[in-house]
Design a protein around this nucleic acid. Structure first.
Lengths: 169, 169
DNA sequence: ATCAATTCAGTTGTGCACAACTCAATTGGG
DNA sequence: CCCAATTGAGTTGTGCACAACTGAATTGAT
């Protein structure tokens, strides 16, 4: 069972080692990114996911929870408590839609809109501190986007018609 | 203040929009990656972070909690409960070091070692499903590693001297 | 008009990340 | 030798991600 090389002459052991490295690298990069934003966002009183939600709201002004979730690929299980905290902090306002009583519309308060001005410094400081120029940022964004798309597809493939054994959902 | 272009003629609004895109892309890519592994690891009864720990243990055989934490950049606050769950699942064994009573040594049980054979299929299926060849994987790993290093440095700079005006370095 | 299926927000439970802390074991300076 | 500082594991509390579920509002088929 040591001679399998179904992928370009790479042995299973090396594959596992490489997987270790790639998994760890992604995991570490994410947490490093998170850490930098954590520091940069501390003075704004926002966590990184809360910042993402505010970015969406600043851009669109007012959105139902469902739409925010679509923009960020997050479900209500994550967003509901997060939005309650943003509301408690005074940054957003939630109210039941009159059109559709199931839907809840979220929008920045005056305070939340004002926060945007202070937030403008964040990406500027990130750019300074990482030393990445616009080209690099755009390139990274594109790569990550493609990667995410490939992975989302992969998850579907695995989950649905999936692998060697059954593994029904 | 709409004319500020401290970074190559890019206005603050665009910077914020770009930050939105890059933040979201990384966040989404990470969660997508996580999702694929979640599916692939389901049959092994491991979560993604548990898989990372097992990868380290398979490679090194036996390590104190401290060393595992250094390999994965995780602290005892994260590792202690995770290792207790791995122990409850019967995959690892923990025992107090005789040399130093503060230290706890972790090593795979027979069952945990056997799990390695089944885990060999995981990176293979990941490779299949993402369609990335070895070169791409290695390239991505390198990029992520560099990014993480730059970000870790950045966090230090921000945290340490990076006060109100963000002058650091 | 009625009832079954769907949609949306929210809750519950599990696991991870991280800060701040406790406590025992070890180490080093006097 | 003794005590202060350090080290290593663990606990507590907060917040996020996600699965599975609840419950109310809406939609659709008959």
């Amino acid at each position: 069972m040591h001679h399998t090389d179904s992928h370009g002459g790479v042995r299973d052991e090396d594959l596992l080692r490489l997987d270790h490295q790639i998994c760890f690298s992604l995991h570490a990069a994410t947490r490093a990114f998170n850490g930098v934003y954590r520091v940069a966002l501390r003075e704004l009183g926002l966590t990184y996911p809360q910042y993402l939600v505010m970015l969406v709201l600043w851009e669109h002004g007012e959105l139902p929870v469902k739409r925010i979730g679509e923009h960020l690929r997050l479900d209500s299980g994550t967003l509901s408590p997060l939005l309650k905290r943003l509301e408690a902090a005074g940054y957003v306002e939630r109210r039941r839609s009159l059109r559709d009583e199931r839907s809840v519309t979220v929008r920045p308060t005056t305070s939340g809109a004002a926060l945007r001005e202070r937030a403008l410094g964040v990406p500027r400081r990130m750019a300074e501190v990482t030393g990445m120029d616009l080209e690099e940022v755009r390139d990274l964004r594109t790569r990550l986007r493609d990667l995410a798309a490939a992975l989302d597809e992969a998850a579907q493939a695995l989950d649905g018609g999936g692998g060697t054994d059954g593994g029904a959902r």
